[in-house]
Structure formats: C-alpha cells, structure tokens
Write a protein that binds this DNA or RNA. Sequence first.
DNA 1: TTGTACGCGTTATCAT
DNA 2: ATGATAACGCGTACAA
Lengths: 340, 340
Amino acid sequence: MSRTLDEVAKSAGVSRSTVSRVINDHPSVSDETRAKVQAAIEQCGYRPNAVARSLATNRTNILGMVVPESVTKLFTDPYFPLMLRGATEACNRRGYHLILSLFTASVESSIMHDRIARSGYLDGLIAANASLDDKLIPGLFAEGIPFVNIGRHPDDRVNYVDVDNRGGARMATEHLVRLGHKRIAMIGGPADMTPAQDRLDGYLEVMSTHRLPASKGLIAEGDFTEAGGRAAMLELLAENPTAVFAASDSMAVGAVKAIRAQGLRIPDDVAIVGFDDIPSARTVDPELTTIRQPIERIGQLAVEMLINVIDGKAAEGNMAATQRFVLPTELIVRGSCGSS
Amino acid sequence: MSRTLDEVAKSAGVSRSTVSRVINDHPSVSDETRAKVQAAIEQCGYRPNAVARSLATNRTNILGMVVPESVTKLFTDPYFPLMLRGATEACNRRGYHLILSLFTASVESSIMHDRIARSGYLDGLIAANASLDDKLIPGLFAEGIPFVNIGRHPDDRVNYVDVDNRGGARMATEHLVRLGHKRIAMIGGPADMTPAQDRLDGYLEVMSTHRLPASKGLIAEGDFTEAGGRAAMLELLAENPTAVFAASDSMAVGAVKAIRAQGLRIPDDVAIVGFDDIPSARTVDPELTTIRQPIERIGQLAVEMLINVIDGKAAEGNMAATQRFVLPTELIVRGSCGSS
DNA sequence: TTGTACGCGTTATCAT
DNA sequence: ATGATAACGCGTACAA
C-alpha cells in the first residue's frame, strides 16, 4: 500500500528529514542527495500521506462549499453547477480539494454546522449565497474559521464576491424603457436574498427615474424557479404589462410559458428580459435577452479569495483587511424584446 | 481555538484514554466518570480533531465523487445536481463528507488522479458515469481504492449502481408503438457511454420485435445536451418520422424546438418521448412523456454501497463480493405523445 | 548540508 | 474500570 517517509529514507540511505526536505522543495539540500532521494521516491512509488501532513502542518488544503437549506432547493438551477464547476476548477489549479455540503432537512443544521465548521478538516469555506438571516455566517465568526460568502453581506467583516446585480437590473430595465415600454413589470426573487433585493432596487431606480409606474401590481415575487416564474407571470398578466424583467432566466423561461399560455406573443405582445445568461437562455424560443453574470468566474474567484484569506490569516495574524469583489454584469440582447 | 483531549482530561481529573473512551462510546467506563467527563467536554467546548483521529484510525470519513472530463461538460444537466444532492444527502445521514472532483482540461488528468486517489484523504470514491474506456477505473484498481461506479461496467470486479436503461428504452418505444407509430426515430447519446448504448439497444429490440424499420437514417447520435438534441432532430426530420425517442430529456427539449422550428406540431405531427424525468420535463410545452429514473436515489445508493464496500473491506479483507444494484425505470405519460 | 528529537491529537495495546 | 505508553506519518526547530 502506502510507503512511508522512513522506507524511502532507508532505501536512499539518508534520514527521514532529508526526504521530507526534498519533497517540500526545501532549498538546503545538495543536488546529489536530492537526485538520490528523488530516485528512491520514484522507485518506492512513494506518496506523502496527506492526513499525517495535515496533522503536522495544521493545514488540510481542503475547502468547504456550504449550501444553506433555503438554497439547496434551487440546486438544480444551472447557476449552481456552473458556479461549482468554476470553484472546482480553481481548486484543481491551486491544489486544493472541495468538500460539498448541502444542508438538507434530514439532518439538523446544528449538527451539520458542527461537522462542517468544527471538524478540523476544512481550511476555510465558501458560503453559497447565505441569506441575510442565515445563522450560518454568525456561526462562522464565532468559530473563527475563514470564509467567503457568495453575495454581498452587510456585516463589515464578511469577505464576499458578488456581481453588480443592481447595475444589471438597471441595464435590463433601461433596455426595455429604450424600446418604448411604459408598463414594465418585474418578477422578483425571495426577499431575503440579496441578489433579489438588488435586482429589485435596480428596477425601481430606473422606473422612478423615468417616472414610470412601479405599483404593487406590477411586481410579483417568484422563487427563482421556473414554476415560480410562471405563477408570478400569471398574476402580472392581469395588469397588462407590455414588458417584464425577470430576476432570473429560469423564472423568465417560466414567464415565457405563462405568456404563451394566454395566447400572447413574445416579443410582440410582451417583451421579456431575464438575468443570469444560463445555457437555456440561448435555447428558449425566442432566445432570451438577459443580463449575463460570469457564473463560473464567481466560483473561481470565491476560492481564490478564500485561499488569500487563509494565507493572509496565517501570515499576519488576524489583521488582514476584509476582501470584497464585485463582478460586472452585461446586457445580452437577443430576440425576446424585439429588435432595438 | 480547538481544545485537546489532554485539556479535557486534566479538567476532568482523568486520563486522556478515559476521555477518548467516553467520546467513542466505549462500554467499559463507569457511569460516574462518564458523566464527569461529559461535563468537562461541554465546558471546554471540546471537539475531536478529525485529522488526528484519521491518522490514528486510518479512516477519514471522506468520500470522493469524481467526474470524468467527458462528463464534466454535461455537468449543468439537471441530472448531476440531482444525483449530487442525493449523494450529499446520504453522506449527511451517515456522517460522511463528500469531496467533489471534476476533471477539467486545465489540469492534467494524471495529476488529478494522483491527488484524488493517492492523497490518503479518501476512504473511497464514486465514479460518476465513467465511460468504458476511461482510464480512471483501471487506475482505481491498480491503486486498490474502494469505489463504486454509476452506470454498469463490464469488468467483473466493478461495483456499480445503474438503472434499467434498456428496460426504460423498451417501455418508451413500446409506448410509441402502442400509439400506432411506425416510423419511430431515435436520438441516442455518445456511443462510449453505457446508458446511451443500453437505451439504443432497448429501442432496437422493440423495433425489431415489431418488425419496424430502424435504419441508419432513423437513428441520430446526440451528446445529451439540448443543442445536440436539436441538431440531431434536424437530421432526423428529413426521414419524416412520426415519433421520436430521445435518450435524455435535455435532448428531447432540443428536439421539440427543432420540430417546432419546422412548423410541425407536437404531438400531432411528431410524438416525442424522453428519458430522465428531470424537472424541465414538466415545464416544457407540451409536457414531456418520459422514462423516469430515480436520480437522487442513484446518488444515495452509490454512497451507501460505497460505505458498505469500505466497511466490508475493513472487515473481511478483500473477500467481499462485488456489489451491484439496478434501479427500475418507469414510464411517465404526459402530453408529448398524444393521449393513449 | 544533514541528522536528531520532539510535537501534532487521536486511537489502541497492555498493564494495573 | 482506568492509566501509562506506543503507534499513526510527517514537519521542523535545533544541533552537529
């Protein structure tokens, strides 16, 4: 099975420490012995035991991605696989591993919390869009474990990576205004999620700027799912909007179906713009005009920031400044709003 | 930070060993001291250090889910999030952690392989639909690390969990035959993936039984993506089929769009049945008749089997029998084939 | 440059 | 039932 340092040392005729130095690229070892040791390593098929190494260094090179229960339900939305792919990609590059923890109803979250945060297996963790009132984040502070949240968080101490949700929502709404729409409805997300808040704010801001109505009836709350978007759109249709901004592409796809179900045409009767630019935005008919956010990049950035935080903490004590990053969004014009 | 066994022992006025026994529910410890130790544990806020424990026990309670590069591309298909959710769910229940490794182009797969299989961090791993010619599986045997594949594998020694792909494909095709269709086309998956093979075989079997044509022109190879399904359907339409069986719902959704793009109606002009029963099968218009496979259950079962394999190996040496499990599929009739 | 010796936090074996 | 003590495999001051 697994050879040990001692065996390699014996085989190379040196001491254990020397082999260890070779493995960790320590400078002070003669080229001669280095070569000798390398050979022995090859020959034995030696691989360092990560667990033992972790015990000695107090570092595991394992990060955690924790998905709050409220978000686990949305896990099939392409957003998460994409973000996750970005995160694992970055981990691959940096030589880290990623433990994925979805909080589910079957296990009490306090137990999950303990297993995740206090096991000692994790160098740090990424919170996948923990909502404002999530007990997760306070818990992490209490535990003193390095973490990065995906999505902004009002607490000053929270490191996060976010996208310009508000700016994106403004672009989306402006686009519809530019096309001459007056009655522009919005399908929002759950009120306790900051992306939903910010996208709503961006919409309201533009509506207000142009002195357009944004009454209660023009705003419906979805849940970021396609079914939710469909239901929300059904409500909204009673108000006869000529355009809709959906806070996610999944909801936009649902809205498209609701609109069609009423015998209305897109974009002729109702124009629609989404948010995310997930793959299906290009496969809907008509293709979805949407706000692109660099989803994989978010995951990548989150792990890179986290590694920085971990390294920084190790280096400078707890003095490291809070790290934050807000990625830009982009308007992608396709067919669902008519030609501009 | 993290208290240690010694501190608890000192605080409780016993030896380290006794505290260890209490933690591991060892029987031989008096109720009196047990209570005393429990109290000390509470008071210190002690939590066992998982890494140290792993070094001593040679068990990490961490499983790996490894996704071959060919499959990483399909990672946004709802199949994977669902399967993953099932797997993490089972891990939660059993007190295991799950490391997710997506093989990507950015890091050479031999390096990834080493990191995954030889790090010592993993008690075992799940291969997510490794295809037949994937170097992954031979590598795992060479390494002697316990694993379970998702999807059947011809090698006798491979533990796997699979679904009755062939039976499902038969049901799908039979359903179309029952509805009176003669020219039934099929959109298959990549030839090197066993689910694709099996679904094709099921289709061919039924076509042959009913002496229906299954010529080259009636079979197109997709890639399990929506775009691929669309392209495949476009080819097939030249043959004027009256029905199509798509080997995945994603491809079926693409096919629906291709059919519509030709001005044809579903199910009137072309009936269609998919495979998977992912959430979007219920949100397409018309809703998709499909073959349901219990996707989350697959993930759950994979980790449970894997844990069995690991425990079995620990218990009986390498004598444990190969474990296999084939889950049933189910025909779900919705609107995309017309009424039966 | 190289080797010695100790520590990382547990579990496990063996006395007592 | 309890307590020393030896692993587990590696990193790393410290000494040589």
